[in-house]
């Protein structure tokens, strides 16, 4: 992280730095996926931290949702919602491990 930053969010003297936890992604991602992606595990491309999507730091006072790694602040996921399309960028995570029900596996 570049020196001179305020830190990892929270109160910065001018107002809250603007992030919420990854549960803020639940509603917007429910529009796209049939599973609860906030329960999925992701691995940060930048630092290798592994954790649930719900633990990401989500900046939503922006043109889109930006979810950052709580370990290194790198962007893990971005979601832009336009009236007729959504853009989901996952290049900040190597993979998502999504808990599934065995009952749902077709044979």
């Amino acid at each position: 992280m570049t020196e001179g930053y305020a830190g990892l969010g929270g109160y910065d003297g001018y107002g809250y730095d603007g992030y919420e936890d990854g549960n803020a992604l639940a509603g917007p991602l429910r529009e796209i996926f049939t599973v609860d992606v906030t329960a999925a595990t992701c691995r940060c491309v930048s630092c290798g931290r592994t954790g649930e999507v719900a633990t990401l730091r989500v900046y939503r006072h922006a043109p889109g949702l930006v979810a950052r790694c709580p370990g290194c602040d790198a962007v893990v996921l971005r979601l832009t919602r336009a009236p007729h399309a959504a853009w989901l960028d996952l290049k900040g995570t190597t993979a998502l491990r999504i808990p599934m029900s065995e009952d749902a596996v077709s044979v």
């Binding site: 570049t2 001179g4 930053y5 305020a6 830190g7 990892l8 969010g9 910065d12 001018y14 107002g15 730095d17 603007g18 992030y19 900046y59 006072h61 922006a62 043109p63 889109g64 930006v66 950052r68 602040d73 962007v75």
Partner: peptide, 12 residues
């Protein structure tokens, strides 16, 4: 309005 996609940098 303040919009930000990440932590606010503090650059002396």
């Amino acid at each position: 309005p303040v919009l930000s996609a990440g932590p606010t940098p503090r650059i002396p």
